[in-house]
Design a protein around this nucleic acid. Structure first.
Lengths: 233, 233
DNA sequence: TAACTTTGATGCTATATAACATAAACAGAG
DNA sequence: CTCTGTTTATGTTATATAGCATCAAAGTTA
């Protein structure tokens, strides 16, 4: 096993939300207990250091989860898509939030009270198992990511990020344009590099015809090449 | 919250094993089901890519868990102490191992069959909750670590690793000597740097009277200074 | 429309750290 | 004990990438 790369095929896919394992009664309770919140673009959902008020579920939209590092430099540690979980780790660990969550576009999140969560965990073992699986996969992702972000070179890190965005959000109808529109700064923060270097390297990829850029629209022209670049670091 | 550092006080402490939440009958079953294995120094417990055969519990000893990165360079992602879990993530995620585990000294591990694990998870909700908490804390650790390893400079990374080793394994009776004896290479692999740089930086710390080194014996002379170095990156 | 702010693009310089080389100290095998 | 391989130590060089500066383009607000 030399390939330390991501299992690019839907590794942490989750077409269905974690709540599909709930019974009809539990779902009813959930609907009563949850609080539906609409978030605007760039709105903060929670911040590093906050005490979690409940579990946060992203019903619709896109969210970035990041941590502030040395000198306030932010590192995006996870991207969330519709039907995904945003804030759940800290609650389960019994800690305050260690990261911040911000909506990347108009989003709808559900805030699920702590009580409901723990009651359901105690009642419904399948729910517990499902959450365990989710966390375990997330931990695997984080471990793999640590290696990539520390050991790969700029080109490899950027290529990996682009593939990661494809896996997470997929393509537009043309089957090539990433279905997510990030600023160069966000791309840099996702890939552990400065904004200048993200811009520069995207340009290089574009010159090499590996991708095509049009503002924030990124089309993956040669996925195989990207995978190669990502692999070789 | 500017301090993105570790909660140095027993963040992922676990004096008691996760099995304390089992009932007397479950414990009996566990004793029947588990396989006790003695590992010698440097013995491989499992390797990246292996299919997990069960949950691995470290009864006694010290274990490093690492992943191979670009060009075979290894990154230690976790250190395990007595009564800790070694292999559990992959089983819960339903994946193959994404990391390897090696005994750092003579160790005794218990291999707990998959059946027992999942049966107990379905029967005993407190066990599930406990495991959820464990995983959630581990994920938090991994996220924090990603930031440290990517953003801190060599001195900061090494200082953090030394503090991490103290938190995990504690001191000898002199209340200063780390109770773990790693090669410079392991220290480097833990801190995301080359062996030369680990050696060089340890020397520097020694010259600065922050630590004292005598072969693999490392005494922390000025913990406050180390914390400062770790903090400032 | 104009003034202003943010984002994107590109070049240049500085620097942290990897990579390499050499040698001493140490450990294990015969 | 001697031989041989590994670990530790230290100096030198090369390089990837951060940091900074400048400018153009695109959005935003007045």
């Amino acid at each position: 096993m030399f390939n330390s790369d991501f299992d690019l095929e839907g590794h942490f896919e989750e077409r269905e939300s974690i709540f599909t394992v709930l019974s009809p009664e539990e779902l009813k309770e959930l609907e009563k207990a949850r609080q539906v919140i609409r978030c605007r673009r760039n709105e903060i959902i929670y911040k590093e250091g906050d005490t979690p008020t409940g579990m946060v579920y992203l019903h619709e939209g896109k969210v970035k989860i990041y941590k502030e590092g040395v000198g306030g430099r932010e590192q995006i540690i996870r991207m969330v898509k519709s039907r995904g979980l945003v804030g759940f780790r800290s609650l389960l660990a019994g800690e305050n939030h260690i990261s911040s969550a911000v909506a990347l576009e108009e989003s709808i999140v559900h805030c699920i009270p702590e009580d409901f969560l723990f009651n359901t965990l105690l009642k419904n073992n399948n729910f517990s198992l499902r959450l365990l699986q989710n966390l375990a996969q997330e931990l695997g992702f984080s471990n793999k990511r640590t290696i990539s972000l520390t050991q790969k070179h700029i080109r490899g890190r950027l290529a990996e990020s682009l593939l990661l965005l494809r896996d997470k959000y997929g393509f537009e109808n043309d089957n090539a344009t990433l279905k997510v529109y990030l600023s160069r700064e966000d791309i840099a923060n996702l890939s552990n590099m400065t904004t200048s270097n993200a811009i520069r390297t995207l340009s290089t990829f574009s010159n090499e015809k590996v991708i095509a850029i049009d503002g924030r629209k990124i089309r993956l022209l040669d996925v195989e090449a990207l995978e190669k670049i990502s692999m070789l670091g």
